[in-house]
Simulated assay, not measured.
Amino acid sequence: MPVDVHQLSYGLGAEIRGVDLSRPLDPDTVGAIRRAWLEHGVLLLRDQDIAPEDHIRFSRYFGPVEDYPLVHYRHPEHPEIFLLSNRDGEGRPAQTRNAGRHWHSDLSFTARPALGSVLRCLKIPDIGGDTIFANQYLAYEMLSPAFRAFIDPLEAVHELFSKTRDLKNLDQGQVRDMKKANPRIVQPVVRVHPETGRKALYVSIAVTTGIVGLDEEESDAVLGFLFAHQTQVQFTYRHRWRPNDILMWDNRCTLHMAVPDNDHRQVRLMHRTSISGTPCGRVLDEDRQEAA
């Protein structure tokens, strides 16, 4: 099956046309999609009116699909699917209504972060509900050689639910359970992509809380600069959703954020799968007090 690739922005992203995900794909088509994914970081496939089983099958072309680790937010019939919605099944405000409102890379707070994510839009408000992405290859490459040499060997701490102000809408017992199951992780500040060999920034304001070996003032200064630098507009693509859009992104070289620009009285409903990646990072040794 021929695959048409159309670039979406200068920073990253491309649309794939001519592919129907309701049916199995042949190896040549999968290979073409994967090459486009590695080149552009984010891919868009529109008008995909598919079942959850089709969503999961498509995701598995690119690697193992894991059961979503935050068990309270799983699809009741498909544990591989993370339910992202601002309303629960009874129409009440959902706990995930503000999920992803800070820049992040999926599951970087684990020692086996998601290689990629595949997100399908089922319902979207009349206005807003966008998602924005940032190319972390470009963010790294636009730094000065001297600063790149400084940060290349550094490690940083990634922590689930580090933004305490975001916890007020969540079940506190569930939060304690999830934090216990996901201890703090040390990740490289600069990650080498295992397939392309390119270097990318691998910190995010959502979960990165300190740089190992630096004191708090030094760590805050370095991270504050990186957080501001890595999401400059020239590195980004902003997606305005339509129902049955699918976006897939490479978590090893991109950040993303759900833009807080929609009315929660209108439903925003998404299904997301996570493609399991290779081990990266290690559990923080709290006894050695590695963190800043």
Rank of each mutant, 00 (worst) to 15 (best):
L44Q: 06
R46F: 12
D47W: 09
D47G: 10
Q48V: 08
A51R: 11
P52N: 09
P52G: 09
P52Q: 08
H55L: 13
H55D: 05
I56N: 05
F58K: 07
S59V: 05
R60D: 01
F62W: 08
P69R: 06
L70C: 01
V71N: 02
H72N: 10
E77C: 04
H78Q: 08
F82R: 04
G91W: 14
G91E: 15
R92V: 12
P93F: 14
A94F: 08
A94C: 11
Q95V: 08
N98C: 04
A99Q: 08
A99D: 10
G100Q: 10
G100A: 12
G100C: 13
G100W: 12
R101Q: 14
D106F: 10
L107C: 06
S108Q: 05
P113V: 05
P113Q: 04
L115P: 00
V118Y: 05
L119C: 04
L122H: 11
K123F: 05
I124H: 02
I124E: 02
P125Y: 07
I127H: 08
G128S: 11
F133P: 03
F133E: 04
A134K: 04
A134G: 07
M142P: 00
S144P: 01
P145A: 00
A146I: 00
A146K: 00
A149S: 10
I151Q: 00
L154D: 03
L160R: 10
L160K: 10
S162F: 09
D166P: 07
D166R: 15
L170M: 15
Q174P: 00
V175N: 11
R176A: 15
K179R: 15
I185T: 14
